[in-house]
Design a binder for these strands. Structure first.
Lengths: 186, 186
DNA sequence: CTCTTATATAGGACTTGTCTGTTATTATAC
DNA sequence: GTATAATAACAGACAAGTCCTATATAAGAG
C-alpha cells in the first residue's frame, strides 16, 4: 500500500491531522500522483496507529472542533525507509476513454470528436492546475528535496502535454478524414 | 465499469470464450489500456449473462475441455452504444514510484538512481511490446476501425516515450549533481 | 514415466478505493 | 435571520480488482 507510505512520508515532514493531510497534501501538493479519499485517510491513520507506525495526540481547541495530530514513530520511520528502497512496479494503466476510442468504429465522427474535445478541455485544466502547484513548491525543504518534488511535477506536466498533443493530432486527422468524405458513419 | 463495456465491444467483433478474451484481448490487443484478471473476466461474463447482455453456448470438444462461447444480445448492443456515447473522466493517476521520488530526500543518490534505472528498463520493455502489437493490428476490421486501434496504440507509445525521456533526463541531472559534490546523502 | 504447458472454467478471501451519510462548531455571505 | 462554507472526525455499504487455489484433459518434453 503506497497510501500508507505516502502518509508516513508526509507526517515525517510535518505532523498533521487527517484533515490537513487531505486538504494540504492529497488534494494539493501530491495530487498529481496520489489522490486519496477522506474516509480512507482516516481509516488508514487509525490502522497505522494500531500497527505502531504512528502516535496521535488529541488537541482540544476552544474555537474549532477537537483535532487529532498524528506523528511518525521510530517503527514508522524504519518502515518508510525500507519501503522507499524496494523497487516498485509501474501501475496498470486503465483508461475508459481508450476503450471508447478502440470501439469508436461504432460511433460517428461527430460523437468521437465531441469526446476528444471534452478530454482536451479536461487535460488543459489539469495542466493549468499543475502550473499553480509549481510556485508554492518552493517554500520548504532543502534544495535536494525541492529537486525531487520538482521531478514529480515535471512528469505530471509532461504526461499532460503528451495527452494534449495526441488528442489534438487525432482531432485534426479525424476532421480531415470527415471532410474528404471517407466512410465516417457521420 | 469499463470492463463490462470492453467485453461487450470485444464480443461484438467476435463471439469468444472467457479464455480467449483473456489471452487474445486483455493480454494482447488491448493490454496497453485495459488489463483484466482471469477470475474477474469469468465472474463478469457470468453476471453479464444474468443481466441479459450476453448469451452463452456450451461447446463440448473431443480433444479439449468443454468451452462456453459468449455472444452479445440486442440489449448488450444497446448498452454498449449507450456507454460509448457517455463522456468518461480520465482515471485518477496513482504512481508508487512517484511517492518514492517525492520522498527521495531520505534516500542516497545511488538508491534513487537504481530505481530510475529499473524503471527505464521496464518502460523500454513495454515500448518494445507495443511495437510488436502494431503489426498484428492490421489483420482485421475496416480501415476506420484500424484507424482507431492505431490511435489507442499511439497514445501508449507516446506515454512510454514521455516516461523514458523524463527518466533519462533526471538520471543525467542526478548523476551530474552527484559528481559536483552537492549534498547527495550518498 | 513424470513434469510442464496449453486449454478451459470457476470459487474464496482479501485489498484498495469510492460514495454517502452523520455529528458538531464557528464564521461568513446574502 | 438563514444558508452555506470551513474545520474536524468517522461509520456503512459497496465496487473493482488481485492473488491463490481447485478441477480436468491432452500434448509434448525430458
Amino acid at each position: 500500500m503506497s497510501l500508507k507510505h505516502a502518509i508516513l512520508g508526509l507526517l515525517t515532514i510535518q505532523p498533521m491531522t487527517g484533515y490537513d493531510l487531505k486538504h494540504l497534501a492529497f488534494d494539493s501538493t501530491i495530487a498529481h500522483f496520489w489522490r486519496a479519499d477522506q474516509a480512507q485517510i482516516y481509516r488508514t491513520l487509525d490502522s497505522m496507529e494500531g500497527e505502531g507506525l504512528l502516535t496521535s495526540d488529541l488537541r482540544i481547541q476552544s474555537e474549532r472542533p477537537s483535532k487529532r495530530v498524528y506523528a511518525v514513530t521510530e517503527a514508522g520511520q524504519a518502515e518508510l525507509l525500507d519501503w522507499l528502497r524496494q523497487p516498485q512496479s509501474p501501475p496498470v494503466y486503465r483508461e475508459p476513454f481508450l476503450v471508447q476510442v478502440f470501439f469508436a468504429g461504432m460511433l460517428t465522427d461527430a460523437e468521437i470528436l465531441a469526446h476528444i474535445q471534452a478530454h482536451i478541455e479536461v487535460h488543459r485544466a489539469t495542466l493549468s492546475q499543475y502550473h499553480d502547484i509549481a510556485i508554492p513548491a518552493h517554500d520548504d525543504g532543502t534544495e535536494r528535496d525541492r529537486l525531487f518534488w520538482g521531478m514529480t511535477l515535471e512528469l505530471g506536466i509532461a504526461l499532460e502535454h503528451t495527452y494534449l498533443a495526441w488528442l489534438e493530432k487525432w482531432q485534426q486527422t479525424i476532421r480531415e478524414r470527415s471532410l474528404t468524405g471517407d466512410d465516417s458513419l457521420g
